[in-house]
Amino acid sequence: MEAVLAILVGLFFAGGIYLMLSRHIIRILLGVVLFGNAVNLLIFTNGRVMRGVPPIIAEGLDVPAGAVANPLPQALILTAIVISFSFFAFLLVLAYRAYQQIGTDDTDGMRVAEPVADGLPPMGY
């Protein structure tokens, strides 16, 4: 099970990085989402996958009788999902505003903050 998930995580990472190498903001953002989901799966896999054994301690015992599913990765992933989802929503709005204001979603064309023809500073007076 871990091996399958590990391969899936690798594919997600590869797809995410490939998309992030694009010049277009919207593809970069899709890459960021894939990247974020790859991490969520990665944490899940790192917590060791165990199916069908809920982490509930039977009555009269102090510790679970056998191996149980690890609940902690789910808490970590839930936090990470909330954060990455809100970031993605923000980035989508930001990208849309950038498209409206600058008129392009091509990162090569986004040179408002760093103009190409800025010139050298004065050398003397």
């Binding site: 923000f90 930001l94 950038a98 600058i102 990162t107 408002v112």
Partner: peptide
Amino acid sequence: SEKSQIDGATKYAI
């Protein structure tokens, strides 16, 4: 929401 701010923020945020 200056133009340059949106531009800079896009790069910073991503």
